[in-house]
């Protein structure tokens, strides 16, 4: 009976394949074509417009700086949080639940939350004023305060995006049998050595997934930046948005989209290479 029905799995998979094919691959091909053509003929004009734009260099620099600042902090925080929560017996689920609340908030809403804190009439200024640290409203999010703006955006991104990293890391940590750590302890490894020599190598697969996911998302950062800094802090996706909606130039917007995809792919390949997971060395 079962041999005669080998088409059933294919039938069941078909809808998802068609769905992804229509709504992902077709737009992808169209976007790439849009980026490298001009009025239906192959052309690098869009690329040239993109590269020569005043915001191009700044948006690349900002996106990379933000990624480099945010991702390592998020990974470090997720590791610390995951390690701490593994020592907790009671209330573990509640702590994890509270830690993952930011996951349930859209990134634009997250940006708004931090805007209400950091804007001129926001909670931060109110607090600083009541403590007598400032005498009048201080602006943090303007083009005149690039460092404060960068830090504000970075903090908002870290607040918003650490939970997903933590979930992956906690899942990885849960898979490391406690006997490995106990054996290391018996043989004289300090807590730090146990972490670096035993735990970290054993959660490599989780670490790799978290790094790839979080880095790709960091290159796609937009709504939080838009809410807090507007165009004072250009990033790649923000530029794509502006070319699409403000300038109505779909070709340049597509060029940005392709650039972001290429960077994300490169980052993924980089992690696959650097944080190599050798199945032979896993439990």
């Amino acid at each position: 009976m079962t041999q005669n029905r080998s088409w059933i799995p294919y039938l069941l998979i078909l809808p998802t394949v068609v769905f992804l094919g229509l709504l992902f691959i077709v737009p992808l091909v169209q976007t790439v074509w849009l980026a490298v053509s001009d009025n239906g003929v192959p052309s690098l004009a869009n690329m040239q417009t993109m590269v020569s734009d005043i915001n191009f260099g700044r948006s690349i620099l900002n996106t990379f700086l933000l990624t480099l600042a945010v991702v390592p902090i998020q990974i470090a925080m997720a590791l610390a949080m995951g390690t701490m929560v593994s020592k907790v017996n009671g209330g573990r689920e509640t702590i994890l639940w509270i830690w993952t609340i930011p996951l349930g908030i859209s990134d634009l809403a997250a940006g708004m939350v931090w805007l209400s804190i950091l804007q001129n009439t926001g909670y931060l200024n109110t607090l600083l004023f009541s403590m007598g640290l400032i005498e009048r409203q201080t602006a943090w999010l303007t083009y005149q305060t690039p460092v404060a703006l960068f830090i504000g955006i970075a903090i908002a991104e870290i607040w918003r995006g650490t939970a997903i990293v933590m979930i992956i890391i906690v899942a990885g940590l849960n898979q490391v049998p406690k006997e490995f750590k106990e054996a290391a302890e018996i043989f004289g490894a300090s807590p730090w050595t146990r972490f670096t020599r035993i735990t970290l190598p054993l959660i490599r697969p989780a670490l790799q997934s978290a790094l790839i996911l979080r880095t790709v998302l960091a290159f796609e950062v937009f709504a939080v930046v838009y809410a807090l800094g507007g165009r004072n802090f250009p990033v790649l996706v923000g530029e794509a948005y502006n070319w699409q909606n403000q300038n109505q130039n779909y070709g340049v917007a597509a060029a940005y989209a392709v650039l972001i995809m290429v960077i994300s792919l490169a980052a993924t390949l980089f992690y696959l290479k650097v944080v190599k997971v050798d199945p032979e060395r896993l439990p």
């Binding site: 006997e179 106990e182 054996a183 018996i186 043989f187 004289g188 054993l202 490599r204 896993l282 439990p283």
Partner: peptide
């Protein structure tokens, strides 16, 4: 003291040599 665990707890990411050497390295 040294200990042998029920499920061995031999470190999967180290060679047998490094496993045996672990206590000495520490």
């Amino acid at each position: 003291l040294a200990m042998v665990f029920q499920n061995y707890a031999v470190f999967p990411h180290m060679t047998v040599y490094e496993n045996v050497a672990f206590g000495l390295r520490m």
